[in-house]
């Protein structure tokens, strides 16, 4: 199946107090229809900047310095601002950690969801929009939706607000939904509900999903492919089941081992020493080298090329990928 989204060598600069940093550094990945790609990494590794670059919603200090973002074969980076407006919310939806970012506190639910139909589909009459609004609210499983039409965002719980934000973003049946830590702020049982909802919507509509998360359990449960970011770059990517079973990058390996396992009996967690580098002062060579127990002089001087491992579907940016794979 052909790719719905193909990100090629995306590079994004940010002007910060400590100079210009490369927040997204030569990032490439693709997403196919109906599939879910996880973007994982520690905070500051560039996950959100990757998403905002794709959506062309960078802060004023940001600048896309290179690469292509091919969506249905067309480069989003070459689109005019008006063309992007028409794509956002219609062909590509995006939800973020804090649903209030998507919601307007001054409008009730009917008007917020209705606005999407008016803006993108030209539905002028409020009465004609109502059944569509009710339909999408019931698809995100808001109980007794007809009674909540007049409610304002602050009257909803966190989980319900995220459902409304999802409703806004799936109302026009987008081909791609970008979800940037959509459940991080929610309670664990509610997290499961929101993920199950996204899964159901995906099955129904065949939309592709990019799920940004730092929770490896969520990746394992929810996603088909995973791309692991470290200090602005993707260090490993491929099918979730294979990577979790046999990581080909020492960082992935370390993350998986550092995770406390329910029912594990160990006294100490095997950990990755040190901390991620600051993007303002990156080490030469492999960015993970200062924390990597396998690092050699080669690693400390030269950034590793992509090593194709275990066939065509997987890639690891590690000089010793084959050894890590074992």
């Amino acid at each position: 199946m052909s790719d719905l989204l193909r990100v090629e060598n995306l590079t994004t600069w940010l002007a910060t107090e400590s100079g210009i940093i490369t927040a997204v550094d030569d990032v490439s990945f693709s997403v196919r229809p109906g599939r879910a790609l996880a973007l994982v990494g520690e905070s500051g590794s560039g996950k959100s900047m990757t998403c905002s670059s794709i959506m062309r919603l960078l802060p004023a200090s940001g600048h896309i310095a290179g690469g292509r973002v091919l969506f249905e074969g067309e480069d989003l980076l070459a689109k005019s601002p008006a063309e992007m407006e028409a794509i956002r919310g219609r062909k590509i939806g995006m939800i973020v950690q804090d649903p209030m970012t998507s919601l307007n506190p001054l409008f009730d639910v009917e008007d917020q969801v209705g606005e999407v139909f008016r803006y993108h589909l030209g539905d002028r009459s409020r009465r004609a929009r109502r059944p569509k609004v009710l339909d999408v609210l019931s698809r995100v499983q808001i109980p007794a939706a007809e009674k909540r039409l007049g409610s304002y965002p602050h009257e909803f719980s966190g989980g319900m607000r995220q459902r409304v934000a999802i409703a806004l973003n799936i109302a026009c049946a987008p081909k791609l939904l970008i979800a940037d830590e959509p459940t991080t702020a929610l309670d664990v049982t509610v997290q499961q509900q929101i993920l199950a909802l996204l899964r159901d919507l995906q099955r129904e509509t065949g939309m592709a999903i990019i799920l940004v998360t730092h929770d490896l359990h969520t990746v394992q449960r929810f996603c088909d492919e995973v791309a692991i970011m470290y200090a602005g770059r993707i260090v490993e990517q491929g099918p979730v089941a294979e990577i979790f079973a046999r990581p080909a990058h020492p960082y992935t390996e370390g993350l998986l081992r550092a995770l406390p396992q329910l029912g594990g009996q160990e006294d100490r967690l095997p950990l990755i020493p040190g901390q991620p580098p600051s993007l303002a002062s990156l080490p030469a060579g492999c960015r993970f080298a200062p924390r990597c127990r396998r690092a050699t002089d080669l690693c400390r001087t030269e950034y590793p090329d992509w090593m194709a491992t275990a066939g065509e579907t997987r890639r690891s940016a590690c000089w010793y990928a084959d050894e890590v794979l074992g």
Binding site: E42, S43, H214, L216, G254, L255, A258, L259, P260, D267, R268, L269, P270, L271, I272, P273, Q275, P276
Partner: peptide, 15 residues
């Protein structure tokens, strides 16, 4: 905290 840092702090607390 991030996963890799969480493990460091949890080990420290147990020590």
């Amino acid at each position: 905290l991030d996963v890799s840092i969480q493990a460091q702090i949890l080990n420290l607390l147990r020590d």
